[in-house]
């Protein structure tokens, strides 16, 4: 009875489709403008292109060195996310499993790290990093992102570890495994759902981040995609067709990743621990 397809269901579906279509509007403009020559992009940015102009992509790719920036983005995002997962999970495991004043204090510090805006300490951070020779390096920016997002990672992991039954670890220890092996072979694989959350969430933020990359990497060959896209933004004129083409290029890896890994990601998020 509940499964019958009624007019009401149809109306509900149609509404949902319309709402979904609204979300496609900006993407439509992004694609349309990226396919127009300079003049047409300025004169009628919203109309469908009179002629498909794919040259914007090759111009953007060459002029902004998008290939190199893409690799930079992959290195910076990949490095930061790996560090956030590796260090965050171990740190949270220790906090969750070693109750005591020390763990509570550490945990509160991490929570504080989430609440306080990192921009407050930007100037001293820049000064210290410059002094240490970390400005303009992969290591420096990875360290910075890792530091900024570590509280979030630790917060998520700690909550999950606390809910994880202790018996798995106890069984592993009784089975003769060291603490490190227990973590690597038993605990970490069980943290998969939260690892997925940390990876996607922090990965997207770091991939799209413009502000910190601009401050810490501008003027070097290590700039990631958002800064490279900014190359086309001038003080008196901006070449929006090239900017949009560059944006599409920078979106592509994320979209491809999502399309390929969609099923695993959703399973990971919603799965929990199946015993």
């Amino acid at each position: 009875m509940g499964n019958r397809y009624t007019k009401r269901t149809f109306a509900r579906e149609l509404t949902l489709l319309l709402v979904a279509a609204i979300w496609w509007v900006p993407f439509y403009f992004l694609v349309v403008v990226s396919l127009k020559p300079d003049l047409e992009a300025l004169q009628s940015p919203l109309s469908f292109p009179k002629e498909i102009h794919l040259g914007n992509f090759s111009t953007a790719w060459h002029d902004a060195a998008l290939g190199r920036s893409l690799v930079n983005s992959l290195i910076i995002t990949g490095g930061s996310v790996l560090a956030l997962i590796a260090i965050g999970s171990i740190c949270a495991y220790t906090i969750a499993r070693r109750p005591g004043r020390m763990s509570t204090t550490l945990y509160l510090l991490f929570v504080l790290g989430i609440i306080l805006p990192f921009q407050l300490g930007l100037v001293p951070t820049y000064a210290v990093m410059r002094h240490l020779g970390l400005v303009g390096s992969y290591f420096g920016i990875i360290l910075l992102y890792t530091g900024i997002w570590m509280p979030f990672s630790v917060f998520l992991y700690t909550g999950f570890v606390r809910a994880l039954p202790k018996e798995y670890e106890e069984a592993s220890v009784v089975d003769g495994a060291s603490t490190l092996r227990t973590f690597r072979r038993v605990v970490f694989p069980l943290l998969r759902p939260v690892t997925g959350t940390v990876a996607i969430f922090t990965g997207l933020i770091i991939w799209n981040d413009f502000f910190l990359s601009l401050i810490f990497l501008n003027g070097t060959k290590k700039t990631p995609l958002p800064v490279a896209v900014y190359t086309f933004v001038g003080a008196f004129a901006s070449r929006w067709n090239l900017i949009f083409a560059a944006v599409i290029v920078s979106l592509a890896p994320v979209l491809i990743f999502f399309l390929v890994a969609q099923r695993q990601l959703i399973r990971g998020f919603t799965g929990g621990i199946k015993t």
Binding site: P165, E167, Y168, E170, A171, S172, V174, D175, G176, A177, S178, R181, R185, V186, P189, L190, R192, I273, K274, T275
Partner: peptide
Amino acid sequence: IAMVFQNYALYPHMSVFDNIAYPLESQ
């Protein structure tokens, strides 16, 4: 020593083979 837990504490992400092999791998 070896222990059997009330809820068995079988490692859910491992196959039966890997579960049984785990103590031997640890050795």
